[in-house]
């Protein structure tokens, strides 16, 4: 474990708790893409299947359990409890356009042709594009609530910090995983224009609004 990965994990935890809190407090999931949340739920479930079989550390097990629980709770709030506030007219990104190619790629490009490894690879690839419906929804509505932009900033920062973690681990531990690194770079690149808007607008107290 290194500081970059620890801060990254905490940023990730902050992001998902922030979103859950926003929906719970405002009792509304307006501006939140349920499709992205479903895909994040899929990401955690397919990646953390070894939750009960492969113990690494208390920290690892606890965080995996929290991520899965919060993802399920968020999906529940969006599609059941506060379903009336779910903005399905703007959450129109076709998930199958992401899940099918990602599933195919996981079969073709992986470290090991075993069920667990292919599911882990699928999870890594899916996570890199899972935010697209959310970014697409913001581009359609032209704006995002400030708390939602904080959520996106924390979520985008987590994988950017993981990239620094991978550089660190390459130089100090001689460790690298090309699949995770390439997918992590794609994921972080997808946030770039949002990061720009966040820094230039939200940091100056303005609402995040895309140029119409």
């Amino acid at each position: 474990m290194n500081i970059f990965r620890l801060v990254g994990d905490l940023s990730h935890l902050l992001a998902i708790l922030l979103l859950l809190w926003k929906i719970w407090k405002t009792r509304s999931c307006a501006g939140v893409s349920g499709k992205s949340q479903i895909m994040f739920g899929l990401v955690y479930i397919t990646r953390y299947l070894d939750l009960f079989t492969n113990f690494i550390s208390i920290y690892n097990t606890t965080m995996k359990a929290i991520f899965i629980a919060v993802a399920i709770a968020t999906i529940y709030l969006i599609y059941f409890k506060f379903k009336a506030t779910y903005d399905s007219n703007h959450d129109t990104f076709r998930m199958e356009f992401l899940i099918v190619p990602v599933g195919g790629l996981a079969f073709l490009v992986n470290h090991d042709f075993t069920a667990l490894e292919i599911l882990w690879t699928f999870s890594i690839y899916l996570e890199s594009v899972a935010i697209l419906p959310q970014l697409f929804m913001i581009s359609k509505t032209g704006e995002a609530e400030t708390i939602t932009s904080h959520y996106l900033f924390a979520l985008g920062s987590y994988r950017a910090l993981y990239i620094v973690n991978w550089v660190y681990r390459y130089y100090f531990e001689g460790f690298f995983d090309l699949i995770a690194i390439v997918a992590g770079c794609v994921q972080t690149i997808l946030y770039c224009d949002f990061f720009y808007l966040y820094v230039t607008k939200v940091m100056h107290g303005k609402k995040l609004s895309l140029p119409a």
């Binding site: 990965r5 994990d9 990730h12 070894d50 492969n54 690494i56 550390s57 690892n60 965080m63 995996k64 991520f67 470290h111 882990w120 993981y162 973690n165 001689g174 460790f175 690298f176 995983d177 090309l178 699949i179 995770a180």
Partner: peptide, 10 residues
């Protein structure tokens, strides 16, 4: 292969 201990990452 180095990817062995990716699995210690979240």
């Amino acid at each position: 292969k180095y990817s062995e201990d990716t699995k210690d990452e979240l």
